[in-house]
Nucleic acid binder design. Structure first.
Ligand SMILES: [Mn+2]
Ligand SMILES: [Mn+2]
Ligand SMILES: [Zn+2]
Ligand SMILES: [Zn+2]
Lengths: 141, 141
DNA sequence: AGTTAAGATAATAAGCACTCTCAATAAGCC
DNA sequence: GGCTTATTGAGAGTGCTTATTATCTTAACT
């Protein structure tokens, strides 16, 4: 039940928040801009304002329900936080996004930060390139 | 001579381009927004338009003279490309930026990309946190 | 050095992603 | 159900960046 998730996150359970959360949980696309979330909701006949989508996504980020990325181009992209940190490979040709996690990289980062007396909050590793998948150029995620 | 660097990069040597390039080479700050470049030039009495600064920085990026970063917040930040790739630690408290390079991380990235059939163009690793430096809260770079 | 054509600049307008304002609405609590 | 207060939606506003265009520079050629 999504209303429980919202309550646990310290947010009042409202229709627009439920809609956005449900969409992020059920959408094919894992990584979406605010505009994409808005359009997807409109297509489902859910009447939510664009300002509300931006507001709600920002609240979700503050509450830890979603993660925000600033990919190349500077656009904010959101994805549901499912508890498992991961990094990203981004195909600049077809727009597809692949996720990965590498323990060696993660631990090297911690070592570097420690050596420099730096307390890590967060990090992101974006690898840009071209995927060799058969359906490159056609898909998007 | 900066005019040679511009010619080598396939760009006509003009006064505004020279000014921007010189500034990036001589500035204390390695990582600057377009606005910061613009203001710094104004302070030196160099009369360059803001639109020109944006245009020139974008041309420099295309020519490989500078690198553009999209740090948290979505602002574009530029730095001179001095041939040595590096990644970044960013203090969210004082704004200071530290650079590092780690061969282990670099080679793991190549392995991950290869395993996924991905041809890397570029990558960026940003570690956000708080630096323990005595002058945290006061400096900026 | 002066001429000329191609290319670059400056100022301003426009575009775009995002945020703010505020009256209307909906949640949560008696 | 009514009350109190947080949330919403529409549109205006903001801030960063790009496009337009008339003017000016640069670089190559007399
Ligand atoms: Mn992801
Ligand atoms: Mn750097
Ligand atoms: Zn692809
Ligand atoms: Zn600091």
């Amino acid at each position: 039940m999504e209303s429980q998730d919202l309550k646990k996150a310290g947010l009042k359970s409202t229709l627009p928040r439920m809609r956005v959360l449900q969409l992020l949980e059920n959408s094919e696309k894992r990584h979406m801009t605010a505009e994409e979330v808005y359009k997807a909701l409109m297509e489902c006949g859910e009447d939510v304002g664009l300002a509300t989508v931006y507001r709600v996504l920002t609240q979700f980020e503050a509450a830890g329900l979603v993660n925000r990325h600033y990919f190349e181009g500077g656009l904010s992209v959101f994805e549901l936080n499912q508890g498992h940190h991961h990094d990203h490979l981004l195909c600049v040709k077809c727009g597809k996004i692949f996720e990965f996690i590498d323990d060696t990289i993660e631990s090297r980062q911690r070592q570097i930060a420690e050596k420099m007396g730096f307390a890590i909050n967060d990090h992101c590793l974006y690898i840009y390139g071209v995927c060799q998948k058969q359906n490159c150029e056609h898909n998007q995620d």
